[in-house]
Write a protein that binds this DNA or RNA. Structure first.
Lengths: 205, 205
DNA sequence: TGAAAAATTTCAATGAATGAAAAAGTAGAG
DNA sequence: CTCTACTTTTTCATTCATTGAAATTTTTCA
């Protein structure tokens, strides 16, 4: 089923991503022009746009796609657990999910992180992506726990966990933590949000 | 100290904002060109950029400025209350703060909300703005509660409250709520985050 | 092979954003 | 009032992202 055409397209796509990442790394996101990326992948500038909707999309690849898929899967299981527990287990499983559904090397992942951290445009895009899936998840939970959880509360719950994790992880990123440390930070933040902030105030671990 | 020069600049700025808002309302954000905005304010296109860094900035005005100011003020008071209470009181006071420090009519505010809700680019920008001040606030809290609250926990706390409020409010916006209802939603979401999500699961109010 | 279908390239335009130099307007001294 | 220093605005020219359309090349398959 994977004819020459498909194979070629995949190759071109990868070439574009690699060329782009290389250039972004070397000269920065802003300073890299689409013309250069296209040249690096040996295609015309116009062709770039039949693979990606814009410069930023090279960086985020199919993030939206698998975020939506993951959200749908989790939501489907919802009724089995309490909202809080479900949200927590998502963090844990997200870890595996991420490693499986992403085809990036550690180096690439690190580079992407650095890029997103430093480029405002990418940061904004990332936040937007995250926000959208939170909304999707909230709606899904609202459906899943029909009658027990109104949309606003579902949104508040999802937002609280996601917000806690997001900000905690980001804040911790300064110290160049290992992926493992990042996940630990995420889990702690999620626990904190689930248990309530009132438990705060004294020295944490 | 308010010579002709200053007055004129303020007038031009207001003219630009008004022209832009009018056009955005009529034809949408994307469809409006800078040339049209400039024409509407009777200045050259180039002049637009000496007032705003870009098209999006017309919409957000000095949001970043007063967000930062507000954050600084709140953080200064921090040691007086527990982190959770401080965060909660920020919601309440934010309401007054917003009405005082904003020079928009209700109609304009409504229009801006609609715009931001519908234009992805503006949404992304808004999220980014919010994110930045959360980070600032988290750092400020970390300083304020020196020794008692590590940065990651501070970030988690701020992120949880802000995330809950953000998503809950956004989700509730579908029903064209009154400003008052919006603030109530915000407060409920904040309470929820502060008390912990585990309190969820049964019918809320 | 020889189309039909799909992808790529070329060409042309629009619109945002920015730099630089020329032109207009404003403040203040005399 | 009027000249000069200082600011702002306007013009002009350019770069770059993004998009549409037509022409061209590739791939697929009967």
């Amino acid at each position: 089923m994977v004819g020459l055409r498909e194979r070629k397209k995949q190759r071109t796509r990868r070439a574009l991503v690699e060329a782009a990442l290389k250039l972004f790394d070397e000269k920065g996101f802003e300073a890299t022009t689409l013309a250069e990326i296209a040249a690096g992948a040996d295609v015309s500038t116009r062709t770039f746009f039949s693979y990606f909707a814009g410069k930023e999309d090279v960086v985020f690849g199919d993030t939206k796609g698998w975020l939506d898929t993951a959200v749908a899967e989790w939501a489907a299981r919802a009724p089995a657990e309490s909202p809080a527990d479900l949200l927590l287990s998502m963090i844990d499983e997200g870890r595996d999910h991420a490693t499986v559904h992403t085809d990036l090397t550690i180096e690439e992942a690190t580079l992407l992180t650095r890029l997103i951290m430093s480029e405002p445009a990418l940061q904004a895009r990332a936040l937007h992506l995250l926000f959208d899936s939170q909304l999707t998840l909230a709606r899904a939970l609202h459906e899943a726990y029909a009658g027990e959880l109104d949309l606003t509360d579902a949104a508040a719950a999802v937002g609280a966990i996601a917000g806690a994790v997001k900000l905690a992880v980001f804040a911790s990123l300064d110290g160049n933590p290992s992926p493992d440390q990042v996940w630990r930070t995420a889990r702690r933040a999620a626990e904190l949000a689930a248990s309530g902030l009132r438990t705060l105030g004294r020295r944490p671990s």
